[in-house]
Nucleic acid binder design. Structure first.
Lengths: 346, 346
DNA sequence: GTGAAAGCGCTAACAG
DNA sequence: CTGTTAGCGCTTTCAC
């Protein structure tokens, strides 16, 4: 390798490698004059620090590992974007690992990240992995771990999620405020906490507004476009007077919308519709779809901030006492996005 | 750090670190028996290789740097997904750098990647950076460089792009085959090569099918939804007989579609419409939008394969001779996606 | 304010 | 087939 090292610079200036190292790292014990000298020749010799060597010695890589199911999914792409934005500003880089590229690779991912000595790991847990040993391993190694979106409380790691309950509540209340009264819900698989939270938000919003809960108005679906289509069909078959639908995801809402259009049901006049997730296609549907935004970019930013806090705590050596503290959990406020599908023309 | 090292394993087994290293790397000169021993105790002691040290010594990190504008954009997310998919299978990891997080950070990105000693760089050049010095730097350091999508021929790096000309040709010919005869084009900013290529594809497809080119049927727009709306308006104002539109991007097509719907023009009956890019929203428009897919995931896979080839060439030491060769340029075939907006009901 | 020395954990000759 | 030796390039006490 013909790369210039600090030795080369030292030789050039008749000084020592250690002085060069300190100067380049802006160490206080080096005079301004020599610093200037050294920097100049470093630039002149086109010197570039070898971070590998630096990290090996110092124990810090300034790399943070990210573990997500897939960058192919808009939501995660946006989260990564948010993380990198702040990470960059703080001198960190991103090592990306997709756990769901072809099969489940979460264990391998944690392993790889750990081997690379990342300074921390930010992860969204894949599926319902029954085994979380690999994450306990991270904690055992005292590598700061932050979770987002899909979270496991038992891991006792700082985390950032969006308030699904509140989002569903907001969506439902919005429909109520628009004057809809027989509001149905197409729900998602109930053994996922987030979908159950959304169901509860829907129920509570109705209750709080003194609207009776009618089980006929709740369709328990799975999460897909098709499920939305079927949900709309079943609901309308059961009750002709339904005048609004809150769908558990934008995809579900999309399916419902397709069914309603096929049957010439006018939205928002005859039936108001709102989804959840603010997918990229939602603004472009006809009518454009009202929805709840989960603020993925902000989620990424907050996750990284949480990581920084863990680092600070680690540096100040409260490693043992911290076990007692409850890990910080940031709950993001969802944002109501009002579009055509839910605005009753007065 | 309490991490176990190869020394610990060696001590435990009364052997030497080098033997342990070789065994763990499956070196042929170690007996099966000792390999087994060593692996067992490695596992038992919960040993994990320190890649930093390994890389520092061996000169290889098995990390590949990716430079993209933003993971927030679906296209790039999909490309990254494609790269990682193959990279993983070949034992490589991904260090991600987004050049367009807030301003232009391309130079910094290359710098960071180089400092981290990545084994190669796969990049999509941001905007029209007049200065490409940082990329010449990569080549100077003999770090394999692969470009995708946004490519600069002067860099003489292997690259993978999609055939824009062909895609436009296919789109236009598809409209012709559907029986449309007065086919307009809403174009994009002409000083981007790809948009000019699409214009040429459109023109040539008409010529090849003996349809006269009419300058009135070409709207020179910018690239936005709004531009599509305006384009459709202008075109129809100039010529009432237009019966199809090929839009330079799906976003442009979206704008055009919005305008046409507003004016109760039926698609595909009165006007056929096709876009370019296969955005995630396109299947869900009404009518669903026909388009040209750019195969982003495949693009990522091919890019990584190109990187592997560069590595192989580098390893076999043809560094000097290769200067003479033309760098390999993979041109991906675009894929025509036929949906409702362009299928004339016979 | 500067330099000498030691070593982070690993791999790669080279001996044996 | 195994072990010894040397060092990748850097940071970091600790003397001076």
């Amino acid at each position: 390798m013909g790369r210039t090292t600090i030795h080369d610079i030292a030789k050039e200036l008749n000084t020592s490698p250690s002085t060069v190292s300190k100067a380049l790292n802006d160490h206080p014990s080096i005079s301004a004059a020599t610093k200037e000298m050294i920097r100049a020749t470093a630039q002149h010799l086109n010197y570039r620090q070898n971070r590998l060597a630096s990290s090996l010695r110092s124990g810090r890589t300034n790399i943070i590992g990210i573990l997500i199911p897939s960058s192919d999914i808009g939501f995660f792409g946006a989260v990564v974007h948010g993380i990198e934005k702040i990470a960059r500003a703080n001198g960190y880089n991103i090592l990306l690992f997709q756990s769901n590229v072809s099969g489940e690779y979460e264990v391998e991912g944690v392993e790889t990240l750990l081997q690379t000595s990342v300074d921390g790991i930010i992860a969204s847990i894949a599926k319902d992995a029954p085994n979380l040993d690999h994450f306990y391993d991270v904690k055992k190694r005292k590598v700061p771990l932050v979770l987002f979106d899909r979270v496991k409380d038992e891991l006792a790691a700082p985390s950032v999620v969006v308030d699904d309950y509140k989002g569903a509540f907001m969506a439902t209340e919005h429909l109520i405020q628009q004057g809809y009264t027989r509001i149905a819900h197409i729900s998602g698989t109930q053994h996922f906490k987030i979908f159950n939270d959304r169901l509860r938000g829907y129920v509570d919003a109705l209750k709080m507004n003194n609207i009776a809960i009618d089980d006929d108005l709740i369709h328990y679906g799975r999460n897909s476009i098709e499920s939305g289509r079927i949900g709309a069909e079943r609901l309308l078959a059961r009750d002709k007077n339904i005048d609004a639908i809150f769908a558990v995801e934008d995809f579900t809402a999309l399916g419902a919308q397709q069914y309603l259009k096929q049957h010439s049901v006018k939205m928002p006049e005859q039936i108001g519709l709102i989804g959840f997730g603010n997918e990229s296609f939602s603004p472009y549907l006809t009518p454009s779809l009202s929805t709840i935004d989960q603020q993925p970019t902000l989620m990424g930013e907050e996750a990284f901030t949480l990581f920084l806090e863990s680092m600070a705590r680690k540096a100040s050596g409260v490693a043992l006492t911290e076990q007692l503290e409850e890990p910080k959990k940031i709950v993001l406020d969802p944002v109501l996005i009002v579009r055509e599908s839910s605005v009753r023309t007065a």
